[in-house]
Design a protein around this nucleic acid. Structure first.
Length: 818
RNA sequence: GCGAAAGUGGCGGAACUGGUAGACGCGCUGGCCUUAGGAGCCAGUGGCGCAAGCUGUGGGGGUUCGACUCCCCCCUUUCGCACCA
């Protein structure tokens, strides 16, 4: 033994050399393919499971301690289910297209593929060091041509179905990333990735018609076992509302002005109209006198970013166009204004303003001195309004409709408008179509060409994958063209339809494309004739348990559901939803309770933790920290507690172990109880309390001189999902052939779980005054008798009248006195 | 503003359909063992009190024999959305 050096780890190594044990089993599991899974048809359907993690982006920083939290949870669950006879698909791969590798390429000239595959190797090694039971033969990387061939194939299907279209509408543009962004990628007016304020730009884009699926994406949420908070976020994002579209005539003009409202019952209170500055009709209705002012306003609005526009929120601005609309219910002429508080992208881009019953309209009307007419009342009378009254009520100032409730009014007025051809029922969604193209290099090329004669033509499926070409410079042009546009030899091609000259589409797909369907590829990762074989899809059906962070609530999880539904419609998959049960892991925070980040200097590197304490310890520690779903701070001290626990387990095996060593009744009961509790907790993903129970069990064995072999073997089986390395080693040491993963999960005897005696609580007026151990099932009368005999109870009831006795069998007796 | 979740010891967190609040772990205190120890073992540990006892789950009401748990009002924190008509 060395005198110096390695002192820090010396104390640990003395009892259990995690480094040696872990390296041994990593190599063994790899060599023996212990974790490989196949589609065994003898396994009944209900015993087939698909347990999935959100696959990582292989960044240059390597694995973060946040990654293994979810991965450990699914690993424990997978091992637990395998030991219970389930055939579990549990794969891992890499979300490998994306900006960081490309930005690195711009800086250093290194090809993004080179960086990406190097990072993948690092990630794989790190992930393996945790002992996760992934079937590595199924690994995929989204940037692999064999993979993105099928991403492109799905795009062709979307295109064929008319769900992909070109657009020049203004989109969010990040001036830092030099690419267009989807609405879902903009948070508070800033780029979700880099934090830079986004601009609006008119850039030719590919859009996916996710809005066509809005209703199904909304209603099918009911089929899912997901956290309510995530469902709520998706519901809010989809933002369905019911109302009416109403047609207004315009004075002296043939054009009609269509508006959308959720409150058609307030039509009589519309005192002016507002159009979005971008509304095409503005050009036609503005009068010559107003032209200058209107144009200036439109220019100003066009220059402002969304963030600036919302900042102006406090102070409403707008300009009168000079035009007048005619209210269809009372033929009153009301002025048409433009203002940036009306958005072009929602509804029809124009509203009727009812200042009495809409806060925004009220504010605008006050500022511009426009009339305010009350048409909804709390009680049917009219009164002075201090502010907009947006609640429902009884109609006033509404002609023949006076006295109706809001709900009745809505129905009647819509029926009337419909019969007159002046309006109709309408449903609107906040969800917008998905801006699907990026003006960058490191993504899937679109399998399309632009032909002068034939227009946009998809390339033949047989030509897939359309490979990403080599390029001199990865630098985005910033002009709205991707770097691919500069490669003439690649861009210039022939039209698949007419054979004439054509140009390839030079946009690339966003990172979300590859992750939209990766769970399907894992079912059949090597298939080169289909994204996955129908038999494989039928075997695994859908993801039974999916675990990942909440940051994808309205991004990946919405996009993937959309693609899945399209694939369902064309018969590729046979379930309406891809992820049946979803659980979100919380964030692991730094020791100071703040988010881990380099700038805060509170980052914990999992490699260091494994080197010092071992992977089993790290896995268990992360699970012991608290419930999976909550954010929880890291605590360096806490990890010693887990290491100590594992050492205690290890040391039990250094004591004499005998097949027939007696087990006390108490220990035996605790054994059955522990198996029961751990089994139940694992089914509910309650890892922290499962670990507590195992700790209680191990403490109870400390005094034993000779240990019962069967008892210990049962224990290492239930410990195995948590600490695969140590338990695999102990399994071998006790004379078994690896792997313990193939051992059957222990069962418990329900009779032995029940305690023979229970502690009965005696209380007087609800206050605990004493306790007594009594046999389980003691009769009520006997319990009361015992309570009344209790010294302390006697003290507290002395000289008082007993009003009643409350008895909960096997629990308590409460004496109520006065 | 709207939506969601959550407030329990010095800290992370337990607590079944209302029934001994604080399991388990960290930390701390005392003891044993030790050349030494981020080692091991034993005991203790919400607060006040010598004790009996009192008090205690963000605050205030309520229901109940009994409330962390159920109901009403309020406060705070975190997250998401945010002029969506």
């Amino acid at each position: 033994m060395t005198e110096c050096g390695n002192e820090r780890r010396g104390a640990w190594v003395k009892d259990y050399n995690h480094e040696e044990v872990e390296n041994k089993w990593i190599a063994y599991w790899d060599r023996e393919k212990t974790f490989s899974v196949n589609e065994d048809n003898s396994v009944p359907r209900e015993k087939r499971l698909y347990v999935l993690d959100m696959f990582p982006y292989p960044s240059g920083n390597g694995l973060h301690v946040g990654h293994p939290e979810g991965y450990t949870a699914t690993d424990i669950y997978t091992r637990f289910k395998r030991m219970n006879g389930y055939n579990v698909l549990h794969p891992m791969g890499f979300d490998a297209f994306g900006l960081p590798a490309e930005n690195y390429a711009i800086k250093t000239g290194t090809h993004p593929a080179q960086t990406t595959y190097k990072n993948i190797d690092t990630f794989r090694t790190q992930i393996k060091s945790f002992g996760f039971c992934y079937d590595w033969d199924r690994e995929v990387a989204t940037c692999d041509p064999d993979y993105y061939k099928w991403t492109q194939w799905i795009f062709l299907k979307l295109f064929e179905k008319g769900l992909a279209y070109e657009s020049n509408a203004p989109i969010n543009w990040c001036p830092e990333c030099l690419t267009g962004l989807a609405n879902e990628e903009v948070k508070e007016g800033r780029c979700d990735r880099c934090g830079k304020e986004v601009e609006r730009r008119n850039i030719r884009q590919w859009m996916l018609k996710i809005t066509a699926y809005a209703d199904r994406l909304l209603t099918d949420l009911d089929l899912l076992d997901w956290d309510d908070s995530i469902k709520a976020m998706q519901r809010n994002w989809i933002g369905r509302s019911e109302g009416a579209e109403v047609v207004f005539d315009i004075r002296g003009c043939d054009e009609k002005l269509n508006i959308y409202t959720t409150r058609p019952d307030t039509l009589f209170g519309a005192t002016y109209m507002v159009m979005s500055p971008e509304h095409p009709l503005v050009q036609k209705i503005m009068t010559n006198e107003q032209k200058g002012e209107v144009k200036a306003y439109i220019d100003k609005a066009a220059k402002a970013s969304d963030l600036q526009r919302t900042d102006m929120n406090k102070d409403k601005t707008g300009v009168f166009t000079g035009g007048y609309a005619i209210n269809p219910v009372n033929n009153k002429e009301i002025p048409i204004w433009i203002s940036d508080y009306v958005l072009m992208g929602y509804g029809t881009g124009a509203i009727m303003a009812v200042p009495a019953h809409d806060e925004r309209d009220f504010e605008f009307a006050q500022k511009m001195s426009l009339p305010i007419v009350q048409v909804v009342s709390k009680d049917g009378s009219t009164y002075e309004l201090e502010a907009a009254e947006t609640v429902e009520g009884i109609a006033v100032n509404s002609g023949e409709f006076n006295g109706l409730t809001t709900a009745e009014f809505k129905k009647k007025i819509i029926d009337k408008l419909e019969s007159e051809g002046r309006g109709k029922r309408a449903i609107n969604y906040k969800l917008r179509d998905w801006v699907f193209s990026r003006q960058r290099y490191w993504g899937e090329p679109f399998p399309l060409v632009h032909c002068e004669k034939c227009g946009i033509v998809p390339i033949d499926e047989k030509e897939l994958p359309l490979k990403l070409p080599e390029v001199e410079s990865y630098k985005p042009t910033g002009t709205g063209e991707s770097p691919l546009a500069t490669i003439d030899s690649w861009v210039n091609t022939t039209c698949p339809k007419c054979g004439g000259p054509a140009k390839r589409e030079t946009n690339t797909m966003p990172q979300w494309a590859g992750s939209c369907w990766y769970y399907l590829r894992f079912m059949d990762p090597k298939n080169d004739t289909a994204l996955a074989g129908p038999d494989k899809i039928d075997y695994w059906t859908a993801v039974n348990l999916y675990i990942g962070g909440t940051e994808h609530a309205v991004l990946h999880l919405l996009y993937a559901r959309f693609w899945h539904k399209v694939l369902f419609d064309i018969g590729v998959v046979d379930t309406p939803e891809p992820f049946i049960k979803l659980r979100n892991q919380g964030m692991i925070l730094g020791e100071n309770g703040e988010k881990m980040s380099k700038s805060r200097g509170n980052v914990i590197n999992p490699d260091d933790v494994i080197a010092e304490h071992g992977a089993d310890t790290l896995r268990m520690y992360e699970m012991f920290l608290g419930p999976l779903s909550v954010d929880k701070p890291w605590n360096v001290q806490g990890i010693y507690g887990i290491r100590r626990f594992l050492e205690k387990v290890w040391r039990l095996f250094e004591k004499p172990i005998k097949e027939n060593a007696p087990i006390s009744e108490e220990v035996d009961r605790l054994r059955h109880k522990t198996i029961k509790i751990v089994t139940e907790k694992l089914d509910n993903l309650e890892f922290n309390t499962a670990i507590s129970q195992m700790m209680i069990f191990i403490s109870s064995l400390q005094k034993e001189e000779v240990l019962n072999r069967g008892l210990l073997l049962d224990f290492i089986k239930i410990l195995h999902p948590f600490a695969p390395f140590m338990t695999e080693e102990l399994w071998e040491i006790t004379g078994h052939k690896p792997s313990i993963l193939n051992a059957a999960w222990p069962t418990f005897d329900p009779d032995k779980v029940i305690d023979k005696s229970v502690t009965i609580v005696f209380s007087v007026n609800g206050k605990v005054r004493g306790t007594e151990e009594m046999p389980k099932g003691t009769a009520k009368e006997a319990l009361i008798e015992a309570a009344l005999k209790n010294e302390r109870v006697v003290e507290h009831t002395k000289g008082k009248t007993i009003i009643k006795e409350i008895v909960v069998p096997d629990k308590l007796v409460n004496i109520v006195v006065k």
